[in-house]
Amino acid sequence: MGIILTSDKRKCPEIANLEVVNVKTIRQYEGNTNVKALICSRDVARVCQHMNIPNLKVIQLFSAGFDNIDPELLQSKGIHLCNAANVYNVGMAEFVVYAMLMHAKRYNHSIKNRRLRPFRNYHYLTELSDKTVGILGAGNIGGQIAKRLEAFDMHVLGYDLHTDDRPHFEKIYNETHLQEFLGRCDYLVNCMPLFKSTEGMLCKKWFDLMKSTVTIVNVGRKKIINDKDFIAFLKSHKDATAVLDMFEKVPNPLTNPYRRLSNVLVLPGVTAISREIDKKLSVLIGENMKRLQSGEPLLNQIV
């Protein structure tokens, strides 16, 4: 079949004879006519798209997102781009529910109260039932989140740039009715994909329209949030809370402003991790490599 490159051999257990690359070493394959496939992170794909690898047929991403990768450029070179759509949906949706329940049941308070005290004041505990949640991004991941939160008898609203009707959502808004949408939300979940149109989208304009008691759960890309505006909002609204899993590296508790806020819980980049996700990803990669060899249509093909 030729050479198959990967930036993480652990994610490709069913593929033999892999050559491992990173953003620097992949440049050594410039002009190499033996390379047929690249299985990689977005960072490596961003470098590769500008290289000349004459017989490269497919770039298979580990991620569902493909921001800063140019599908049209790859198509002009005869390279298929495939992502990992539907691999992470269930795991991420479950983690969002977990994050919201941690807030509702005030885990950060209750964990200190290990002994049973019948008369302790637990009136700060709340229920998800009958609360309103707004989900930014009504695609595959947002749909799985909505499906689960609907089962909690929540009012599930969506915000999306491309659709106004999806299962499990009571209503889907767009920017025209932003004030109504944000004003209704007790919880706001961001799983919006990163595009030029969504970079910095969560800014002061948005925060000014939210409830002062809103809980924001972010499992989307960090660049969607304007950090300066978000931190200012959290500092000035002590009853607002945030659960954030948006850092590729765990932020330093001394230097990162989010880690110093008492109303913020920072998760260590675990939303998209599970044994089941690893299995789904390896199956997808293995299947696409088989299809490449046999000339069959590829799964999750962007171009």
Rank of each mutant, 00 (worst) to 15 (best):
K112Q: 14
S76I: 01
S41V: 03
F119D: 13
S76G: 15
L73D: 04
I79W: 09
E72W: 05
I39G: 02
V133M: 03
G91S: 15
A85Q: 13
Y88C: 03
C40E: 02
K112L: 12
K131R: 14
I79R: 03
H50S: 12
H109G: 00
V97Q: 09
V47S: 08
A37K: 00
R10F: 08
N34D: 15
L61W: 07
A93G: 11
L136V: 14
I59A: 05
K112G: 10
S41T: 15
Y122E: 08
V23C: 10
A93V: 08
A85C: 10
R106L: 00
T126E: 15
M102V: 01
R42D: 10
I69H: 06
I69E: 04
T126P: 01
I69L: 07
L18Q: 02
A84R: 09
Y29K: 08
K24W: 09
S129V: 08
Q60N: 09
K105P: 02
I26Y: 05
N17E: 10
H123R: 14
V21G: 02
R27G: 06
G137D: 09
I26G: 06
N32I: 02
H50D: 14
N32Q: 05
C12H: 01
E19I: 15
L101E: 09
N83F: 03
Q75M: 10
E14L: 11
V21H: 01
G137P: 09
D43W: 06
M51Y: 03
F62T: 05
D130Q: 13
N89P: 00
A85E: 12
G31Q: 13
L116E: 08
G65P: 05
F95P: 00
G78R: 11
V44C: 06
T33I: 11
I111V: 14
G65V: 08
V97E: 08
L136R: 00
M92H: 02
I59M: 13
L128T: 07
L74Y: 05
D130H: 14
I69D: 06
H123C: 08
P71N: 07
P71T: 07
A37D: 02
I79L: 06
E14C: 03
E19C: 04
D67Q: 09
G65I: 06
Q75R: 14
